[in-house]
Amino acid sequence: MASAREEILQRIRDARVPAAPPVVRGYLTEGPGGVELFAERVADYRAVVHVVSNVPEALERLVGKRIVAPTGVPEEWLVDGVTWLREPLSIEELDGADGVLTGCAVAIADTGTIVLDGGEAQGRRALTLLPDYHLCVVRADQIAGSVPEALARMEPTRPLTFISGPSATSDIELNRVEGVHGPRTLEVLIVT
C-alpha cells in the first residue's frame, strides 16, 4: 500500500491543475513611514506611546518594580531603583514579574506593529508573554513604512512575534476588548 504521503502527492498530480500565470504585484510596497505615523497607529490600539530622546530618563517610570531584562539590553537601561530580573528565569519567576523591558527587531508604521525576533535585548518568546506589562523601546531607524518593507528586513527562520497593541479579543459581540492572556498593558518608547 502506498504511504499517505505518496497517495496525496499522486492525487494532486492526478488533478492536473494547469500552471498559473505569473503573479502581478501591483500593490504598494512602500509606505510613508515616520515616527509620527507609527506613534499614532500604535496609540490607536490603546497602547501607551512616548517619543523620547533619552531612554534611561524615560525608564524612571519603572522604579520600584520587578522588571525582566533580556540578555543584551544596554547597560544604561538598567537604571537604579528597579529590581532587574535576569535569565535564567523560571516560568513562575516570569509569571511573578511586574513587567518586561525589551528592544525590538523591526516596527511597521502603517499598522503600528512591533516585531520581536528573539535577538539582542528581546530574549526568548516567553519573556514578553507572561509579565502583564511590556515596555518596548523602538529606535526611529527600526521603523519600516509598510508591511512589505518590514518583512524584507526580517530573518524568517527566527521565532518572530508581531505585536499590535495589547492583548485583545473580539469574541464577545465582535467588539474589541483589551486584555486577555498576553500583556494587558503595552507601552512603547520611540527613541529619536
Binding site: 499598522t111 506593529t113 518568546r125 518583512l151 521565532p159 518572530l160 505585536i163 499590535s164 498576553g182
Partner: peptide, 28 residues
C-alpha cells in the same frame, strides 16, 4: 498579512502574529 486582518477583524493588524520555523533551541 495585509488582506487577512482587515477582512476578518477589521483591524490594520491583529494583536499577535507568531511565526516559527521548526525548533529553536532554548526558545519554545
Amino acid at each position: 498579512l495585509q488582506l487577512l486582518p482587515r477582512s476578518s477583524t477589521a483591524e490594520r493588524m491583529n494583536p499577535y502574529t507568531s511565526v516559527w520555523t521548526g525548533v529553536t533551541p532554548g526558545d519554545g
